[in-house]
């Protein structure tokens, strides 16, 4: 389990993280989204014990991560840029991992490699970006982690490899109740696999919702009001945003409920229907809302 409370982090003279609080239970997948520079990677580096938190606590199963090798050896960390010794061959890297992680199993690595088929004698520098990502993931899974932290694991992968990587993750969650923290810009990937989504912006966690909750609350309606649009529509508490295209209003809700529908129906709309909304759209609207506050 990952528990983060009141976490602050400064880098240089900039507050990169402000008052971050959240928990990830075992067997759950927490997805981290946010624009570039929102603080996702800094947060991940605090969770993996690379950075020392300024204030607040980062606990893995109740223990501090920073400077704590006993906890760190249970964390599989797939960083956004992985720096292995470029001239190492894969099998040399395996012995290196076996030294660093007591629970490392090279059998597990070769079992995983039946899917990805990396040549054992290849040097790290000879591998493509996508292959290096697979290598990191396989190494991280071979330490039999209780916690998996992945920073943009699917970037630079072709669709087939991406699916294999995600399926591997899902299997770990299913079979070993691994706790997963994953960040990605590919919101389409996240919305299929995450239990909970945290939206970050400017160093703060703007919202934490289960995906089911988000789907129920944040919806997009299209409406035409021939009798005139309710004047204060955009400032209704249930409404996140309103867009107008010709005579059609697109209403993005943040609290979809029967009350809202009743209020809209009072204005006697000619059409009032729901249109599909992806997580990407939700993220964009939620981020815009964040800027307004």
């Amino acid at each position: 389990m990952i528990e983060i409370s009141k976490l602050h982090k400064r880098l240089g003279n900039k507050d990169v993280l402000t008052d971050i609080n959240f928990t990830v239970e075992p067997g759950r997948i927490f997805g981290l989204v946010g624009e570039n520079g929102a603080g996702k990677t800094t947060l991940i580096k605090c969770v993996t014990g690379v950075y020392r938190p300024e204030q607040g606590a980062v606990l893995i199963d109740g223990k501090n991560v920073y400077d704590n090798p006993a906890v760190k050896e249970r964390i599989g960390y797939v960083a956004d840029q992985n720096r292995y010794f470029p001239s190492y061959r894969i099998k040399e890297l395996l012995s290196f991992y076996a030294l660093a992680y007591p629970r490392f199993s090279s059998e597990r690595f070769w079992e995983l490699n039946k899917i990805f088929k990396l040549p054992a004698t290849a040097r790290v520098k000879e591998l493509s970006k996508g292959m290096q990502m697979r290598l990191t993931l396989m190494l991280s899974l071979s330490i039999r982690p209780d916690i998996l932290v992945l920073d943009e694991p699917t970037s630079g992968l072709d669709p087939l490899a991406k699916r294999e990587v995600i399926n591997l993750l899902l299997q770990e969650v299913e079979s070993r109740d691994v706790t997963v923290l994953i960040s990605s810009h590919h919101l389409g990937d996240l919305e299929r696999i995450c239990d909970t989504i945290g939206i970050m912006s400017q160093g703060q966690m703007k919202s934490i919702h289960s995906l089911e909750e988000m789907k129920l609350q944040i919806r997009k309606l299209q409406a035409v009001f021939p009798q005139g649009t309710p004047a204060d529509l955009a400032s209704w508490p249930e409404v996140l945003a309103v867009e107008k295209m010709g005579r059609v209003h697109y209403i993005i809700t943040k609290q979809y409920c029967a009350d809202l529908l009743a209020k809209l129906n009072q204005a006697q709309p000619l059409v009032l229907e729901e249109v599909p909304l992806s997580l990407e759209d939700m993220f964009i609207y939620a981020a815009k809302e964040g800027y307004r506050q």
Binding site: G27, R28, I29, R163, I166, N167, L170, Q171, V173, E174, S175, R192, I193, C194, D195
Partner: peptide, 14 residues
């Protein structure tokens, strides 16, 4: 099984 379906559809086993 939960595992098979989760992999087939690439969705969370939960």
């Amino acid at each position: 099984s939960v595992r098979e379906l989760s992999t087939m559809l690439t969705i969370n086993p939960n």
